[in-house]
């Protein structure tokens, strides 16, 4: 199986029936307590969604370091900035739609322009929120955050990576945004899987003796769909790489350019509007450095709707078969050039 051995992913990565599953947000909950145990300056703020965003364990363990804000996300951003001014390391949580959705200007002015050490945690991002419908499905947040100077943006692929990202951002100074998801998704990385801020990781590599025909840059739980798609393509004799782009900003531009040069064809995958997200960020880098055909898998300028997460991922064209289709298409485009 051509999962990159250096990535140390789980053995049963393709076994959808038996692979362990958990929401990525659980990783935030665990990572926050881990970080807070070591750093007493870490404080938590939440806008009336403490357990749902997985800040509950922290709040119960450190009640003196937790502030219940009520449903006031704009104020939460400003208060966090003020706490950071005193040397605290505030983590603020809500659904991504409300923070950083509702409070974008406060995030820009009070956190990023001031360059304050505030960590934004946006839970329930993506259409996979499911039955709650479009009002609660943030599919614009990566775009909203990556456009602001000083802000770093992360989209962990599973619960374990979510924990690593949470812990890692507690150790660096400056504004960070991490998007988490509501639904259980496969835990396909392990504690040993490498993670470093600003580094892309090769999760899937073409079989030995083959060459890379297409490279898939993915972020969030859909990275697992990209791997499922790769195994299908692999069976057709196509050489595929899957690159985990958990660190969207700072982006590992060196790796992006090198991988695109080798493959000559790119697919991007994200549970986000195609406009402004990971795919756009990749396209910005490649068009300036090494233009190649790109196909974008994501939501195409539409709002979400109610449904079961898998139904919606299929409905909006982000299932493994859609990624397979995009890969075939972009390889054809490469051959037409």
């Amino acid at each position: 199986m051509p999962a990159n051995p250096k990535a140390k992913l789980v053995e049963n990565i393709l076994d959808l029936k038996n692979i362990a599953q958990a929401p990525t947000r659980n990783g935030f909950g665990e990572g926050l307590v881990m970080a807070a145990d070591e750093d007493q300056n870490i404080v938590g703020l939440c806008a009336d969604l403490t357990d749902s965003t997985k800040m509950g364990d922290f709040a119960r363990k450190y009640p003196g370091r937790f502030v219940e804000m009520g449903i006031a996300e704009q104020n939460m951003a400003g208060v966090a900035s003020g706490l950071a001014a005193i040397g605290k390391v505030p983590f603020i949580t809500s659904y991504a739609m409300f923070s950083p959705g509702r409070n974008w200007e406060q995030v820009r002015t009070t956190i990023c322009y001031n360059d304050r050490n505030v960590k934004l945690i946006g839970s329930h991002a993506g259409v996979s929120v499911g039955p709650d419908g479009a009002t609660h499905q943030a599919i614009e947040d990566i775009a909203l955050m990556r456009v602001i100077p000083n802000m770093r943006v992360f989209a962990p692929a599973d619960m374990i990576e979510g924990k690593k990202v949470t812990y890692a951002i507690s150790k660096i100074s400056g504004p960070c945004y991490v998007r988490f998801t509501r639904e259980k998704t496969p835990i396909f990385t392990t504690e040993e899987t490498p993670f470093e801020i600003g580094k892309a990781q090769v999760f899937w590599h073409e079989a030995e003796g083959k060459k890379s025909d297409v490279v898939i840059f993915a972020c969030g739980p859909l990275t697992h769909n990209a791997i499922l798609a790769s195994s299908v393509l692999e069976n057709e004799g196509i050489g595929v790489r899957v690159i985990n782009m958990v660190s969207i900003k700072p982006m590992d531009t060196g790796a992006v350019i090198a991988q695109a040069k080798e493959a000559g064809a790119v697919v991007t995958v994200e549970e986000h509007q195609i406009s402004g997200g990971l795919g756009s960020a990749i396209a910005e880098v490649l068009s300036a450095n090494h233009p190649v055909p790109i196909e974008f898998v994501g939501v195409n300028d539409r709002f979400g709707e109610s449904g079961e997460p898998n139904e919606l991922i299929g409905h909006f064209g982000m299932a493994p078969e859609h990624i397979v289709e995009a890969a075939r298409k972009v390889i054809n485009r490469k051959q037409e050039i």
Binding site: G64, V67, G82, L83, A85, I86, E105, Q106, T109
Partner: peptide, 25 residues
């Protein structure tokens, strides 16, 4: 200058955050 400001309404939340932080300390 303690905080960058201009967009109205954003100073008081930051002042509240500072006040909370100082009380914690």
């Amino acid at each position: 200058i303690e905080v960058s400001s201009g967009p109205l309404g954003t100073g008081l939340p930051q002042a509240v955050g500072m006040a909370i932080g100082l009380k914690m300390n």
